[in-house]
Every structure is written in C-alpha cells, then in structure tokens.
Design a protein around this nucleic acid. Structure first.
Lengths: 258, 258
DNA sequence: AAATAAAACGAACGTTCGTTCTAATTTATG
DNA sequence: CATAAATTAGAACGAACGTTCGTTTTATTT
C-alpha cells in the first residue's frame, strides 16, 4: 500500500492565498482535477486505468457517488451496485479505477492526510502570534470546507482502516492541537496574551474546527435554492466568515487581546 | 415501533445526586439492570423473551458485545455471527431478544434519548446562573460518562436510522445548545455575566461535552492497569474533575466572573 | 413424576455482497 | 482504414449475510 506522494517543497508554501475563500479555492492545490491526478499518480498499484484523463474523470465520478451515498447511509451499507448506479459506471469500469472497495477509504485517508499536512506545513508569515493563530484557523476552515465531503467521510469511516492508519488519524488531530497550543504559549511567553490553559483552548479550537465540517447543517444559513454557482460561493463565503468571526472573537476574549 | 416509556414525573427530578461521580452512579436511574428492564418493558414488540430476568441478562450480553465489536469496526461490519461469538449466545437466543439487527440501534437511540431528556428535565435548583450552568455541565459529563458506549455508538450509527429519527438526534443537540444559550443570556440580562456571543459559547460547550465521550483517548490519564474496580472509579472521577475544571475555568473567563 | 411452557440451539434458507470474467465496443495508432 | 490495445457492460461466482425454523434442553407448574 503506497503512502502516496508528499508535496514537493515548492508546493508547500507561499502560493496559497488566504485573503478570501474564493481566492483560496483558486490557489489550493488539492482539488478537482489536480486532486484526482494526484490519486492517479500516487496509487498506480490500485488504479489499473492507464490514461490519466480517463482515470481522473472516473475517479471523480466514483468519489462523488461514494460521498453522496454514504453521507446518508454509511460506507459499509453502500453496495458497489449502488455505487455503479449512482456513478453511472459499470462494475468493470469501477474496478479499473480501484482494486477493492476498501481502496476508496484508503484514498480518502490519503487526501485528507495530505490536506492536513499542507495545512501544517503552510508557512504562516504573520506579524503577531494572534495573526498567526487567526491564519491557522482560516486555513483549517477553508481547507475543510473545500474538501468537506472528504473530511466528513474519513471521520466516520476511519474504523474501516487498519489500526496503524487509525492511529495516524488520531495523530493528525493531536498535531493540530499541538500546533495551536504552541502558538498560544509563544504568545503568552512574549506577553502578547494573558496566561491561560493553552491546552484547553487549543483543544477547543480544534474541536470547533471539526464541528464545522461534521455538522454543516448547524452553520449553513440560506442554503436552499441559492440559485447560481456564483451565488452559492458568495453564501459559503458569508457563512465561513460568520463562523470565523465568532471563533476568533471568543478566542480573542480568552486571550485578553483587543 | 414503540417510542418507549417516558419518565414518570416522580423520577425526573430531585433524586439524582451530583455531588460526585460516585454518588451520581448510585442515583442515576438509567443504568445496569434498570436500564435493561426499561428496554424490556418499552419494547415488548421486539423482545420475544417473556421473563424479565432472562431478558435483562441477555440484553446486557448483546449490548456489551455490540459495543465491544462495533467500537472497533462499526455496526454494519459486525455480523450476527460475530455478535453470537462475542456474546457467547446462539443465533436463536439473540433473536429472542431482538427481531431484527436494526433493533439494536433503535434501542440505543431510545436509551440515549431518554438520558438526554433526563438531563434536560432535571430541575436544577442553583443560587446563580453560573451555578446553574455548572450543574448542567456536570450532569452532561456524568451521564455521558456512565453511558459512554451508548452515546458513542449512537453518534456513529445515527445514519442507520430513519430520517425522522436522525432529525430527532439533531434536535437533541440543538435543544442542549438552546438550554445553555438561555442560561447564558439570563445571566447576561441579570448582569451576572458580561455580554458576549451566547450562541457561540453554548455551541462550544456542547461540542466539548460531545468530544468527551467521542474521544476518551484524549482525556483518559493513567488508564492502563488501574487494578481494582474501586481504583478505576477513582481514576475516572479524577479525569472527569480535571476536564470539568478546564471547561468551567474557560467558561468563567469568557463570562468574566470570578 | 409428568406435563407444559420458555429458552436455547445451530443447520439451512434465500438473498445480496464483493469480485471476476468474457464478449462486445471504443479508442489509439500506423 | 486496419489492427491492436484498452475499456466497457453486465452476467456469473462463491462467500457471507440476516433471518428462520424444527428440534433439543432447561425451567416451571401440576
């Protein structure tokens, strides 16, 4: 089982634009064709299809269908016949993109892991610890919004993975908490923040970030009949900003900045 | 499908002791034999076994086994043969306590719903809004610790339920948020708390309560080889108190009390 | 001790699962 | 346009699933 490509250094930093969600979506490398091309490259042992173009199109249909079905009923309940119907592909077509049903979970895990690594590796050049924290939150929110079905799916299907991979998923969360905690404590040490239980606040932030992609129904205002795709993006931007504002306001109050 | 018994008024208030987790465990009505007796009474249409004593013993084995297996691999992956092996019961014995595999999820949902209702109905007689909030948090923590496998299981298997039941589960969470929000706003109105985004804080509290039973691995210190059952309870008490302290300290700071 | 009710058993049933196979079709290439 | 390679559709396969049921064992009553 390939643990997949890691980002080349040139990809890891500096190019991703956090100034708005719209900008983020056009600069984040893990999405759309790029994402599926990455899966195709990284999992040559799984994907039997030879031509990237075909593989990308088929993988997209497979994952879209998988997310659509198993968001409602779970991955184990989803049969490959359901998948075939929803994706409008034959069994053979599906089995030329994957080797076993389980591969789907593995690939999702790979993508989410890469996205989390991107988030962690992204060099935040900010003037203050507070700005650093805020950019970290923004990045997490943006990435998990863009890849919401992937993050959501992995959270609920982690138990299908091997113990080692499950441990790795937990580690991702612990790393995220650790990162926030370090930033908070740096700010405390430098006198920028008032002293507090950094570990608890870091944990709170990570759990709230998780809640964002696990329970979109709690945070999506005006989701029905949003009309054009452009309007939908606008609405998404609004929702993210509202959540981000609440999140950072609460954090700022705890850190006694402002 | 029976929606099960609701608590009689005499059971809903006043008798549950929040002064420590140990006291709570001896006064909370939804546990052990009482819990299974309740299932037996409420689901006569499902449970074919006639004698309560037998049913209680077998239901206990079924649910223990279910939680043990599906915590690791998920309910859908668990076959009834796995269950039969783990519970050390024959297929026939299992099918005299349930009518369909799905019944297991329904019964768990029923118990968790009842526990949540107990939590909400419990009349908190406290001197201040702050004390009221703190008792609410304590109750939530205690109940979800005592019934951790039930809460955990339902969170991950809600998708096996009907749309109506899924909606009901969401409503439980929204009700909890609503309750905390109301308490916070009451405290703000009375001048006990400094004004803030009550909705955000209420949401934060509920999400942190959820994290407690979803990710015990994050919060369990000294879990290995804890020796006797008494020592284990002591350790549990310690862990709850530590989490409760962090939770309330953070909350107090946001509310600017102290 | 006999009779009866309740519970437990586990092999067998029909169905559905993930996966494989093959004949037909499409695509690429000279 | 010819030919080879890749891709497709969906029938077929064995394993495993949830569930049933005739039978045996255990508990209770007469």
């Amino acid at each position: 089982m390939n643990q997949a490509v890691t980002m080349s250094p040139s990809e890891t930093g500096r190019v991703i634009d956090l100034s708005s969600y719209a900008r983020f979506t056009s600069t984040f490398p893990l999405q759309g064709e790029h994402l599926y091309a990455r899966l195709f490259d990284a999992h040559q042992d799984i994907v039997q299809t030879r031509k990237q173009k075909v593989a990308v199109a088929n993988l997209a249909r497979i994952f879209d269908a998988t997310f659509a079905i198993s968001a409602a009923s779970g991955f184990d309940k989803m049969s490959l016949r359901d998948l075939s119907r929803q994706a409008d592909m034959s069994m053979g077509a599906i089995y030329s993109c994957i080797s076993r049903k389980e591969d789907i979970v593995l690939m999702v895990a790979d993508i989410v892991r890469q996205s989390s690594e991107l988030t962690r590796q992204f060099s935040l050049q900010a003037a203050s610890c507070r700005a650093q924290l805020e950019q970290g939150l923004r990045f997490h929110l943006y990435a998990s919004t863009l890849l919401q079905p992937w993050y959501f799916f992995l959270f609920f299907e982690t138990r299908s993975l091997s113990d080692a991979q499950q441990q790795a998923s937990k580690q991702i969360e612990l790393d995220a908490i650790g990162w926030f905690e370090a930033q908070i404590e740096e700010g405390i040490a430098s006198g920028e923040f008032k002293p507090l239980d950094a570990s608890m606040l870091a944990n709170t932030l990570v759990v709230l970030l998780e809640d964002w992609y696990l329970k979109p129904w709690k945070y999506q205002a005006g989701s029905s009949r949003s009309g054009s795709a452009k309007q939908a993006l606008k609405q998404k931007e609004k929702n993210i900003n509202a959540y981000y504002a609440s999140l950072t306001a609460q954090m700022a109050r705890l850190l006694a900045v402002e």
